[in-house]
Each structure stands twice: as structure tokens, then as C-alpha cells.
Simulated scan of single mutants.
Amino acid sequence: MTVLIDTPLWPAHGTVWSHLVSDSSLAELHAFAALNGIPRRGFDLDHYDVPAHRYDGLVAAGAHPVGNRELVLRLRASGLRVSGRDRAARDVPPES
């Protein structure tokens, strides 16, 4: 069981962002995030978005730094990855 964090490269809101994921369970991911003060609103289906200024502290707290590609590969291998098709489906209103 490992919490992973990728390099902060994703620009938004005046900073760059990392992704924080678990390679084993969402429960582990949510617990790690809560323990480290990452708000639940930062969770996006299979990962937390975290700003660059939090990166070093999360690594010090035990998140394992990995490259962006490795993070996606390990998230897919865990079975926790939410695909693009699944993401699109969440934006479709339910049928009446």
C-alpha cells in the first residue's frame, strides 16, 4: 500500500498542481489526505489535486514521488483509475 505523488506540472489558478493517488485503496488515499490537511474538495474521482507548495510536505509525510507516467500506470494497475469515458458519464444528467 502506497500513496504516490507526481511532479507538480499541471497549471491552474496561478500555480502548478500534483496528483496524489493510492495504488491500493481510496480509503488509504482519503485517510492520508485528511491526516495531511488536504481538503476533500480536492478529490477528483481517483486522485487529489494538490498545489505545488504542498509537494515537499506530502513527500516528507510519506507520499512516494513518481513521474507522471508511472503514477498513471500504477493507478491503472490498482484498478482505481477512472477512465475518460467514466468521467464523461458523470457529467450526463440522469434520464427522467
Rank of each mutant, 00 (worst) to 15 (best):
S25P: 06
D44G: 07
N68F: 10
L4Y: 03
L58S: 00
E28Y: 05
E95D: 07
R90L: 04
L35N: 11
W17E: 00
R81F: 01
P8R: 05
D23H: 01
L75F: 09
E70Y: 06
H30I: 00
L80I: 03
L80D: 08
S24I: 06
A77S: 14
S96P: 13
G67F: 14
W17A: 00
S22F: 08
G37Q: 10
A89Q: 06
D56M: 05
N36M: 12
P8I: 07
A27P: 04
A88G: 10
G42D: 08
S78C: 09
V16M: 01
P65T: 15
S18V: 01
V82N: 04
A60G: 09
P65R: 15
V50T: 02
D23V: 09
G79F: 09
D23M: 02
L29R: 08
G42H: 07
A60C: 11
N36K: 05
L20D: 11
F32R: 10
S96G: 10
P11F: 03
V3A: 06
P11C: 04
I5G: 02
R40N: 07
T2I: 07
L26F: 12
D23A: 11
R76K: 15
A60Q: 13
D86V: 00
L45G: 08
G37V: 09
L35G: 13
L26I: 04
P94I: 07
H53Q: 12
